[in-house]
């Protein structure tokens, strides 16, 4: 099989899985929130309400599409497009499973293994804010603009702490490639053992990057009536909401890959299976981890209230940033004592 055909299949597979997971995340979100609030949740469309996301999508398509006459038409359309595009792009560098052998050839179950994978992830993640900024700006609406400003300042504040948390990880692993990082966790413990504080900072920042509660100041319904997507309707709004769920999926995958062993699981080599079957099991193991983290995202959202804006900034600049720097120092000292660096 030509490598290009295999890659095309993987791209199609990952694309559809991403969309499917994001679709059912909307259902899961409503169900999880219902369960945590002692309610039943969506249960009308299909068995257990499983067709609810399809009903929601149909509703979104059928809604009237409004473009405010005072808005900047081009930018108004561009906003949700960028959000969706960047959300989908981040999945490219994530390794989804071990190598797969077809005939004589061996392929990686990953779209592309960049040697600067982490930098790519960061670049794409920070591009995501442009979708929100452009959308909020083009709406020509106070609330949208306020939401956009909040989103961009929040992104900047938390990206620094996130980057510094990752630097400590890069110091211990010595590579920027995601596949390398995951493979190293096969041989030794997962990175969470070495970098518990970095992991915590990264998860907190991931919440802020995906604009999820308790950091959903950009779209807080109570103050900004939806923030940057106040003026959006129909499937453009759907794109924004959908991009958030895709981001959540990708963030969960990244957290799993960075700190929780990616597709590796304990005692995987003593099971007596290897090759393609092991790779398929690994894929489902990674998927299980991702599902857990998506649940974790929702669990946190339906537990704690939103931060106030000054609390958000305090936490970012006075809390997480010094902690991340201290983490780098401690990591460096420990490595120096152990003799990992000269």
């Amino acid at each position: 099989m030509e490598p290009i055909i295999f890659k095309a299949i993987v791209v199609g597979l990952i694309f559809s899985i991403t969309l499917l997971v994001a679709t059912y995340s909307t259902y899961a979100e409503r169900k999880v929130s219902a369960l945590m609030q002692d309610r039943v949740g969506p249960n009308r469309a299909g068995p257990f309400g499983l067709l609810q996301p399809i009903a929601d999508a149909v509703k979104m398509f059928m809604k009237e599409e409004l473009i405010p006459s005072v808005s900047n038409r081009w930018l108004f359309v561009l906003g949700p497009c960028i959000s969706m595009l960047t959300a989908l792009m981040a999945g490219v560098v994530i390794p989804w499973g071990g190598p797969i052998t077809i005939g004589e050839q061996t392929f990686d179950f990953q779209i592309v293994d960049l040697n600067v994978g982490i930098l790519f992830l960061f670049g794409v993640a920070s591009l995501g804010v442009y979708g929100i900024m452009i959308g909020g700006w083009a709406s020509n609406n106070k609330f949208s603009l306020l939401g956009a400003i909040r989103a961009s300042s929040q992104m900047i504040s938390y990206e620094i702490a996130m980057g510094l948390a990752i630097i400590a990880l890069v110091m211990t692993t010595g590579t920027l490639s995601l596949k390398e990082i995951v493979n190293q966790q096969d041989a030794a413990y997962c990175n969470f053992v070495y970098q518990p504080l970095g992991c915590l900072i990264f998860i907190i920042c991931a919440f802020a990057e995906t604009n999820r509660a308790p950091f959903d100041l950009a779209e807080c319904e109570t103050e900004l009536i939806g923030g940057y997507h106040t003026e959006y309707s129909s499937m453009k709004l759907g794109f924004y909401l959908f991009a958030e769920y895709i981001n959540m999926f990708i963030s969960s995958a990244v957290i799993a890959c960075f700190y929780f062993g990616g597709y590796n699981f304990p005692f995987q080599h003593s099971l007596g299976i290897d090759g393609n079957w092991l790779s398929i099991i690994q894929f489902f193991v990674l998927f299980g981890k991702i599902v857990f983290f998506i649940f974790f995202f929702m669990w946190v959202r339906w537990t704690i209230p939103r931060f106030r804006y000054d609390q958000l900034m305090n936490l970012g600049w006075k809390g997480l940033l010094p902690l991340a720097i201290a983490n780098i120092f401690v990591t460096g000292i420990v490595m120096w004592v152990n003799g990992d660096i000269n």
Partner: peptide, 21 residues
């Protein structure tokens, strides 16, 4: 505090539902 709060919400998953179909 967040952790204890999350334990509370988690325990509610298994509680009797207040609403009915």
């Amino acid at each position: 505090a967040i952790f204890s709060g999350m334990m509370i919400t988690f325990s509610h998953i298994f509680k009797k539902k207040a609403t009915i179909k």
